[in-house]
């Protein structure tokens, strides 16, 4: 099979196009998705190809169009709702948290909500406190939502396609900083579906496991490279999905390395890493040769200043230090 190199943005675009072509119930709705071709150009060319009935520009009314999506899903359409960024999904929090995931239970199993909420999530670069939210920990707290966080073009395409076919509300948390990154992927005619809830080892290692997702995956790979020079062999485990969580993959890797650092892009207090650390100590405590370490954002609103922003983010210095700590190096 001839693998080819494409960008994360193109991969998402292919996934959208393929799912729109496959199922007439799928439509894409959001701010600037149609005529502008997407604020980040993810929906480039889709209006031209699928027309204004299926690629729909909205006013700046997140609560409204997210709710419209949930309603349409109740009667069998399969909406893909784009948030220009997930920081703006907070305006639609009620729809995403209260309506979409509760419906199936509240209706005694009558109404499932096959909807995808997607868009860039997490800090980008110097966007300040209102525009830098990593929302995964907020949404991960909600039963009924599924959440994936692709870090590579291949995962972006395969996870988004799976998300569209899932019969539940799925959040596809993309990353602005990754849109232009490149990676190898199967040719277009190959049906690429990556299951939700399956982690992937992005780099094999034997001394320590770095559990990561989204923006912390390229960070972990860079750090692993650097640690290699200091004779520390780090395994990089990309969760790919936050919920469901691939616990088996985590335990398997930790049983091999016996040391683990969780590198998350959200905040420490009740962050995704807190849950992972708890499960590791609960289920495979005996495998650990050191306490589990965690690297995350600092617990402060995001400052605009570049140096301070860097200090708040989970960065290479923090990750290297955490790895060395668990390795007693």
């Amino acid at each position: 099979m001839n693998m080819r190199e494409i960008t994360y943005r193109q991969a998402l675009n292919e996934a959208l196009a393929e799912e729109l072509a496959r199922d007439p119930n799928v439509f894409l709705m959001g701010e600037e998705v149609a005529e502008y071709n997407g604020a980040y150009k993810v929906s480039q060319g889709l209006l031209e190809r699928f027309g204004p009935k299926r690629i729909i520009d909205t006013p700046i009314s997140e609560n409204g169009f997210a709710g419209l999506g949930v309603g349409a899903a109740m009667v069998g359409l399969r909406p893909i709702i784009e948030f220009m960024t997930f920081s703006f999904s907070l305006v639609a929090f009620d729809q995403v948290v209260n309506n979409a995931p509760n419906m199936l239970t509240m209706s005694g199993g009558q109404f499932n909500i096959p909807i995808v909420f997607r868009g860039p999530n997490g800090p980008a670069h110097q966007l300040g406190a209102t525009h830098s939210h990593a929302t995964e920990c907020l949404y991960a707290n909600v039963p009924g939502l599924k959440i994936c966080t692709p870090a590579t073009p291949r995962d972006a395409k395969g996870l988004l396609k799976t998300a569209v076919r899932d019969n539940n509300p799925v959040l596809v948390l993309e990353s602005e900083l990754l849109y232009s990154s490149k990676g190898m992927i199967e040719p277009p005619h190959v049906e690429l579906l990556i299951p939700l809830g399956k982690a992937e080892v992005k780099r094999e290692g034997s001394d320590v496991t770095i559990v990561c997702y989204a923006q912390t995956v390229p960070l972990a790979l860079r750090v692993a490279e650097q640690l290699e020079e200091e004779n520390i062999s780090a395994e990089v485990l990309d969760l790919r999905s936050i919920k469901p969580l691939d616990e088996e993959a985590i335990y398997k890797s930790v049983a091999k390395t016996h040391r683990v650092v969780v590198a998350e892009q959200d905040r420490p207090y009740c962050g995704v890493g807190a849950e992972i650390c708890y499960r590791i100590q609960k289920n495979i405590f005996d495998e650990l040769d050191a306490p589990v370490a965690r690297v995350s954002q600092e617990d402060v609103p995001m400052p605009y200043n570049e140096r301070l922003e860097h200090a708040v983010l989970p960065n290479a210095e923090k990750l290297v230090a955490a790895v060395k700590k668990v390795c007693y190096a």
Binding site: Q126, G128, A129, P303, Y304, N305, L308
Partner: peptide
């Protein structure tokens, strides 16, 4: 005016 913490938008 916002001590460098807000930026252009804040």
């Amino acid at each position: 005016c916002s001590r460098g913490l807000g930026g252009s938008m804040h």
